[in-house]
Nucleic acid binder design. Structure first.
Lengths: 166, 166
DNA sequence: GACAGACAATCTGTAAAACAGATTATCTGT
DNA sequence: ACAGATAATCTGTTTTACAGATTGTCTGTC
C-alpha cells in the first residue's frame, strides 16, 4: 500500500522545500474546498478573526493575520458584499471600523471549518493519529515562538554570516 | 524564558494557518540568508537539482521543482549569467538542454546549504532535537505521499462536498 | 524521403497580485 | 487652535505568474 516514493535528491533534506511542499499541498486542497467562499482562505481567516472579535480595527486585524493594510480593504469589501461581515464604526474612535461577523458569516464559518477539517485529515493521512496531534502541537509552538519574538531574524542572519566568513 | 504567547483565537487550530506561519517564517529567514544568491530559494533549488543531475532537461526539472516552464527560463538565465550552471545541449536530443552545475555553482551550493542549516536551526529552535528529526521525517513522509499520489485531491473534495450536503 | 504531429525551449502579451505613497477624516496633546 | 499621529481608503507602479504563439527538433507513418 505505502508506495515508497523517491524524493528529489538533495532537496529531501531541505526543510524549506519540505515546508513549501506540504504548505502548497494543503493550500491547493483547501482552495478547492473553500471554492465559493469570498476571499478563499484569507477571507476565511478574516471571518474567523471577526467571529472571535480579537481585533479592535482593520489594521489591528491585518497585523494579526499578516496581511497588508491595503489588501485588507478589498478583502473586507468582498466579505461585506457577500454579507458575511460588517464594518461597524467604533463609537470610541470614529476612524476605526470594527470587523464583526454577521449571523450568516458565522454559519458559513462553521461550514467552512468543517470542510477544512476534512482537508486536514486528507493532507495528514500518512501520519498516525498521535503524530498528527504532535505535528499540530509543534507547529503551534513554533508559531507562538515566532510571534513572541516578533519575527526578528537579525540574530539568525548574524550567525549565518559568521559561518560563511570562515 | 519561554514566553507563552497567545495565538489568535480560532486560528490556532487551523492547520493551514499554522503551516502558513511556519512556512513564511522560514521563507523570509532563508530569503535573507540567501541574499545575493541568484534566484533566491528557487535559484538554490535549481542549482541543487543541477548538482544532483536528476533531471534530463529544463521541463523535467521544472516539473520536479513545481515551477512553471516559462519561469524556469529566466531563472536559469540568471544562474547562467552568474556562472553557477550551464545549459548543455543534450547530444541525443538537441531540443533538450541539460542544466549542469559548474564548479563555482557547487561551491556556492555548499555555502548556501550550510547557511540554510543555520536558518533551519533557528526556525526550529523551540523544539527538542528529537522533535526536530521527527518533524523532518513527518514532512518527508507527507511530501512523498503527496508526490506518489500525484497531488490528486478529487477524493478529498468529494468527501468534503458530501459532508456539506448533510 | 516527405510529411504530420509532438515536444523542448523561448518569446510575447496579459492579468492578477503586492506594495509604496498620497489622501481624507479623525484623534491626541499642547 | 494647531501640529503631529493614526485608520481607512485610493492611486499608480512594479512584480509575478501564466496562457498562447513561435522556432527548432524529434518521431513515426506512408
Amino acid at each position: 500500500m505505502k508506495t515508497e516514493h523517491e524524493l528529489p535528491a538533495g532537496l529531501d533534506d531541505t526543510l524549506g522545500w519540505l515546508l513549501a511542499q506540504v504548505f502548497q499541498n494543503h493550500l491547493s486542497a483547501s482552495q478547492r474546498a473553500l471554492e465559493g467562499f469570498p476571499g478563499s482562505q484569507r477571507g476565511y481567516m478574516v471571518v474567523n478573526a471577526a467571529a472571535h472579535g480579537c481585533a479592535r480595527n482593520q489594521i489591528d486585524m491585518a497585523n494579526q493575520l499578516r496581511l497588508d493594510r491595503t489588501v485588507m480593504v478589498y478583502l473586507v469589501d468582498q466579505l461585506v458584499e457577500a454579507g458575511l461581515v460588517e464594518r461597524v464604526p467604533d463609537p470610541a474612535d470614529r476612524r476605526s471600523k470594527m470587523i464583526v461577523a454577521t449571523d450568516k458569516g458565522r454559519v458559513r464559518l462553521e461550514e467552512a471549518t468543517a470542510v477544512l477539517r476534512f482537508v486536514d485529515d486528507h493532507v495528514l493521512a500518512p501520519l498516525e493519529p498521535g503524530e498528527r496531534a504532535h505535528l499540530r502541537e509543534m507547529l503551534q509552538r513554533l508559531t507562538a515562538h515566532y510571534l513572541a519574538t516578533g519575527g526578528d531574524y537579525r540574530e539568525a542572519c548574524a550567525t549565518a554570516a559568521a559561518a560563511t566568513d570562515k
